[in-house]
């Protein structure tokens, strides 16, 4: 069936099976490969995208559940000012190593700051607890989100 939604600020209509994973629609149909698959069961968060500004695991979301909603992937988010602030904070603090969790981590970090512009370390850790990283030990990412919050993510 035809699924209509807004993808990275553009209205799209995609004719696929309604049970198809949002992740597969993004990667295989739209060729937006910035969204990664790390586990396929909602544990790692590498597939994080924003649906109506909330971070979700696109590996668990059937495409029908974004009908009429707004989806932002890293490809859309990287055009924003908020991305510039967050990504430069990640660079300054060493928040990205292998890079596989990074697009999802950056989107989740944005969602944290959108809800809570000045989070404590603990609030950052709790809010990002659905995104796993095997490289950094997380400290650098906490520092990066902290730094981005100091610089201010303009929404």
């Amino acid at each position: 069936m035809e699924i209509k939604f807004v993808l990275n600020h553009k209205q799209v209509a995609i004719d696929v099976n309604p049970s198809m994973r949002l992740l597969d629609v993004l990667r295989d149909v739209c060729h937006l490969t910035g969204t990664k698959e790390g586990c396929g069961e909602g544990e790692c968060g590498a597939c994080t995208v924003l649906v109506n500004d909330e971070p979700v695991n696109s590996c668990l979301m059937p495409i029908i559940n974004v009908f009429g909603k707004e989806v932002i992937t890293i490809e859309g988010f990287r055009e924003t000012k908020a991305y510039k602030v967050i990504s430069s904070a990640f660079a300054d603090m060493g928040g990205s190593q292998c890079g596989f969790c990074t697009p999802g981590m950056i989107l989740a970090s944005y969602a944290v700051l959108r809800k809570n512009p000045h989070p404590t370390d603990e609030e950052i850790r709790i809010a990002l607890s659905g995104n796993l990283c095997r490289c950094t030990g997380y400290q650098a990412i906490v520092n990066a989100v902290k730094l981005a919050s100091e610089k201010g993510v303009k929404l």
Binding site: G42, E54, N65
Partner: peptide
């Protein structure tokens, strides 16, 4: 679960 999952 996680905040991401609780959004779904």
């Amino acid at each position: 679960a996680s905040p991401n999952i609780r959004n779904m």
